Simulated scan of single mutants.
Amino acid sequence: MKYQAKRKAIILLEDGTIFYGKAVGNKEGNAVGEVCFNTGMTGYQEIFTDPSYYGQLMVTTNAHIGNYGTNEEENESDSAKIAGLICKNFSYTPSRPASDKSLEDFLTENNIFAISDVDTRALVTYIRENGAMNAIISTDVEDIEKLQEKLKTVPDMNGLELASKVSTKEPYFFGNENASLKIAALDVGIKTNILRNLAQRDAYIKVFPYDASYEEMKEWNPDGYFLSNGPGDPQPLDNAIKVTKTIIENDHPLFGICLGHQIIAIANGIKTYKMHHGHRGINHPVKNLITGKGEITSQNHGFSVDKEQTENHPDVEITHICLNDGTVGGLAMKSKNTFSVQYHPEASPGPHDASYLFDEFIERIKKVKA
């Protein structure tokens, strides 16, 4: 990229606070959404294509973004899902031989506006102290009042249903059709690497839209059911909650991750709540209360399950605890074949400490099928 003066850009938070930066690629533009941050040192492409980040402005805390380009095989969905990108140093020239395009080209193709040269340490500190909030990033730096008016139109993440924005429109299959197990997955924002993990364990998966009925899923005669990760507030997902209740009532093997974990909690009458600034990174410590072992995990969520209600539920036990703040990391039902975790055992990117959870799901299915 030839040197040229970078176009000025700003981040305007809903409380009126302003941070300054420069537009990536010298482009004009703006983007709105809830501003959040991810502390991962790698895996930016997987983050940007993770449907769970739909509607969010992503602040990357790693100082350098774009240095290894992108590779189509590493996408977690069919396109970038973030609302916009905020970073410190943006690398225009990738140095990895395996990359098929630069991050700049990737963002342009996906129509994602990005700004760099931001004091991300100061911005992240501000979010940690004041909480996640809506924001706008823009090159229209002279008209703050206009940006403030636009920002007022952005809906609050609390109570916002977003699964319909990222779910598949039609059912599709993943894996080997001759596999020994069949799993029906309800897609409320599923990551491709979750499907890969299930397929690698001799499972054939049929992925259903977020609004699919239990009868539609049951008609395929699956051996087990899966509830995916996804964006937004779980409370408005009436159909997913209804389907989950029916799966539980019929005692089918059921595994939920992230948003799926929250849906399972709600199906059991346990409330969820909007967190102050959420968990997003690839080094979050979790304790497995069943084995007593610690796990380093990949996490991405802005909502959590009410711990007190979970502890007091007669048929639900907490299986994992997030050690940074004591929030619920996993749960299981005592009388039903249902369990879930708040974090990402597929860890793309991240550590593989929790990949055993996929093995546990497969073993639960095999025991029922035997």
Rank of each mutant, 00 (worst) to 15 (best):
Y126H: 09
S298L: 07
F255Q: 05
Y3N: 10
I194V: 15
D187Q: 01
I362S: 06
Q262H: 09
L12M: 08
L85K: 03
K101L: 10
F48D: 08
T61Q: 13
F106G: 12
E109D: 13
L103V: 00
A114F: 05
S102V: 06
F303R: 01
P155T: 00
E74K: 14
N134M: 04
V118P: 11
T310A: 15
I241T: 12
D100V: 05
I318Y: 09
E308H: 09
L162N: 02
M217I: 00
L181S: 07
I247N: 09
S138V: 03
S77T: 09
K274Y: 09
I263V: 14
E177H: 12
I18G: 03
A179R: 06
F358M: 07
G224A: 09
H279D: 12
E360L: 15
K191E: 12
D251V: 00
I183N: 03
M58A: 01
T39A: 07
A347S: 10
R364D: 04
S340F: 02
D353I: 11
I47Q: 12
L181T: 00
K191H: 10
E142M: 11
A23D: 04
T153P: 03
F226T: 04
I205T: 08
T61W: 11
P171H: 11
N288M: 04
K27M: 13
R128L: 02
A31W: 04
T108C: 10
T272D: 02
Y210W: 13
G25W: 07
E170W: 03
I264N: 01
D143F: 12
K27H: 11
D119Q: 04
Y356W: 01
C87G: 06
L254Y: 03
N221W: 09
T70D: 12
V328R: 00
N134I: 08
Y126P: 08
P222Y: 13
S335N: 15
F90N: 03
I248M: 10
Y343K: 02
M275I: 00
K150A: 05
